[in-house]
Design a protein around this nucleic acid. Structure first.
Lengths: 243, 243
DNA sequence: ATCAAGCTTTGATTCAAATCAACATAAGTG
DNA sequence: CACTTATGTTGATTTGAATCAAAGCTTGAT
């Protein structure tokens, strides 16, 4: 079902990875860290547009994103698509598959990407040995649950501009945590994909971008976005705190 | 922050609990099952309208619902409420607290309830000892993630009647799995709470109920609902499969 | 039993976002 | 490069759900 991808047999090591603080728990000594390298079996490259995994595929591994950008999405029986998340370097993807041993969404690379393949059996074995890793995995899953709670609030209660403001703030915050600019973004997704995530149509997303631009809150040119006035965005997202 | 509740020191045992197949993994021998009883420290009663836990409270335990019915909800800075789920007997509540060690939602009893208090430290200790329990906890969290994915699809893509149909079908399915009627429900929540969960206003929920009733799909009288034509509900929720 | 408060239903009107439509811009491809 | 296709913007119109409003039911308390 997936496009062919290169399976690299190169030796991979979390212990040397610059994303370690994002994917992995902190506080291990170097000896334990060596053992933890066993969670990652191999790396895998995924080309832009290709599937990392697909709905219905057997679940065997979680994936830690090393480089690149993904979306996860589900579709209803009559073909409506819902983007359920956007994932970037250092984030874990594939948690949906644990419950049934089959994936229940598609994960698609929005740019050329590389992931660390972490066989779930390895994760479970090492989690029993290392309480810190166990705790870490629990937190990763809980974080995803809490994120989705927030999305429910967005979709259930927020207006189009509030949703887009929240989306932009979340994106820059995560990019900033990875050492990228707090003010400039090059979006990896289309207006339609943003809209799908936020429960809006692409025209509505485009209009909200234009509105923010007219108001001098952001500068937009296609996928390039510069945040001129982050406080204004926060105020739109969260009016009460600012009145 | 919570209303006072009775802390019962009675000896509790999963090994004898009729909800065991819902809360706990299957496949243990009776000796291991005895050890697993340690996961539950005590039971706690929660009166209708009272909080099981509140946003901001320290997270120490997960709760398995023995009897009763809960809602979980979050509120935005300016006071908008979003119900993030309804939980019934045999379900686990409190997963939101794991990531930050503080709860990020309120859990409120919609009827008098009793829960098993499972200190998270106990769960983690026993999970390291018993791979089946470890796997079970992972599945519980993954199931919650997948449920929320489905809610995102509902809120992002579905119309009011489709949302209500999905909600009713989900509810009867879960009640049926607990040995209750597949056709008759007494709702534990108000129209407003249903609306909050589904991203709708209470009037819209009421109108959708009335519409289904006029069409002979359900019989409604306040909180009482009888499903006359479940296939029609499935068709509304999921038109493609039926055309 | 009576009253008050909370919930539910229904109708009239408004409004935010969807839809329909046209064009502009960018990105790929042979 | 020219041409096709994908993506993005903007305007006009429609529409589904929100809002505003009023009345009917239930439930629980005095």
């Amino acid at each position: 079902m997936n496009q062919p991808t290169i399976q690299e047999a190169i030796k991979v090591a979390c212990s040397n990875c610059n994303l370690r603080e994002l994917c992995m728990p902190v506080g291990f000594d170097s000896e334990d860290m060596q053992k933890l390298d066993e969670v990652v079996a191999t790396r895998r490259r995924v080309k832009q547009g290709d599937l990392l995994f697909a709905n219905g595929e057997e679940f065997t591994s979680l994936f830690a994103i090393r480089t690149g950008f993904f979306k996860t999405c589900i579709s209803s029986a009559d073909g409506r698509e819902q983007v359920t998340g956007f994932q970037m370097a250092g984030e874990i993807i594939g948690l949906d598959g644990i419950v049934s041993d089959f994936h229940s969404c598609n994960a698609i690379a929005l740019e050329d990407a590389e992931v660390c393949v972490m066989p779930f059996a390895n994760i479970e074995d090492l989690s029993r040995e290392f309480p810190l890793l166990q705790r870490h995995m629990h937190k990763v899953m809980s974080r995803e649950i809490v994120r989705e709670n927030g999305v429910m609030m967005l979709l259930g209660n927020m207006r189009a501009e509030e949703r887009l403001a929240a989306f932009l703030l979340n994106l820059v915050q995560r990019l900033h945590a990875r050492g990228l600019s707090q003010t400039e973004i090059v979006l990896r997704m289309t207006r339609e994909e943003i809209g799908s995530y936020l429960g809006l149509k692409l025209e509505t997303v485009s209009r909200a971008f234009s509105k923010f631009s007219e108001e001098g809150i952001i500068e937009v040119k296609q996928r390039y976005v510069r945040i001129i006035d982050p406080e204004a965005l926060k105020k739109i997202f969260n009016p009460q705190t600012y009145c």
